[in-house]
Design a protein around this nucleic acid. Structure first.
Lengths: 145, 145
DNA sequence: TCTTGACATAAAGTTAGCTTTAGGTATTAA
DNA sequence: TTAATACCTAAAGCTAACTTTATGTCAAGA
């Protein structure tokens, strides 16, 4: 069993944030001692790991809360939970794809400014890429349907 | 030359958002016609593509604004701009790594709930992974130093 | 006994990034 | 000529996810 201070260090999360998660219903099974002090067990730690993961993947607190609620309703919510994770898997895969597109643009910009730095100005490198971006990168950023 | 409505459709961004970017100083070179109506040129479109990319990679408006400011100061800010992109490249690479960790967890959960769904309950699959998570996934989420 | 440190609560405050509202102008179509 | 449409501004409002503040309890050490 751990105190909130220990968990705070373990997860590198401020104490008020942990209390906030508790208040929002993300830590349903959290016990208290006789004087009201929170006692975190291994279950709660697992839950926090999952919360961190879902937050990192862009899920909102209220949706995480909904999921936690399903968990406490037992076997009849298993399919819902599975669907939720399948959807979240897709979300993450899309986010990774988007970040890879952004990375291509940023890498081009790194190259561009390295050349410009060598020359002391942007003249030459600007003339090599007259429309601002090379075609392959431009295509990644075209939104027209 | 394009109107704000055309750009809104082109980028799939609400008109007020584009005006907000302009107000915040992200579109320094944006011209107006004699009656004050914004006229977007190809330069502005390039800038918007870059803004979208930087936003997607998690950069804040105020930092994007700072970068745009550097651009208008000419050659003496080339190194600064290069450094900015190098840092941003690292940021994106880290974000991708974090998302890949999250993905590993989510994929485990997908597997877990598929098994549970087959069985109609979590009993068996819980007994296969008694500590909540398999070791390899757990390790990804350990924050202790 | 007194003070220190770690815990507790409720409620107000903060920040980013929009979004909405209210009111006005200018051009075109009927 | 009127009505619709697309633009404009300033300012207020909104939401999520904390964070801070003010106040209080409790157990252990000097």
């Amino acid at each position: 069993m751990y105190t909130i201070g220990e968990i705070s260090k373990m997860f590198n999360l401020p104490i008020p944030t942990l209390r906030y998660y508790d208040k929002e219903g993300l830590l349903l099974e959290l016990e208290r001692d006789k004087s009201g002090i929170r006692k975190f067990n291994n279950q709660n730690i697992e839950t926090l790991r999952l919360i961190e993961c879902l937050k990192k993947s862009g899920m909102q607190i209220k949706d995480i809360k909904e999921f936690i609620g399903w968990c406490s309703l037992g076997d009849k919510t298993i399919s819902k939970r599975k669907e939720m994770f399948l959807k979240q898997k897709e979300n993450i895969e899309n986010q990774i794809k988007e970040l890879e597109k952004a990375l291509a643009m940023i890498e081009f910009k790194c190259w561009y400014y390295e050349e410009a730095e060598k020359d002391g100005n942007e003249k030459r490198v600007k003339s090599i890429t007259p429309n601002g971006l090379p075609e392959n990168i431009k295509k990644l950023y075209e939104n027209a349907h």
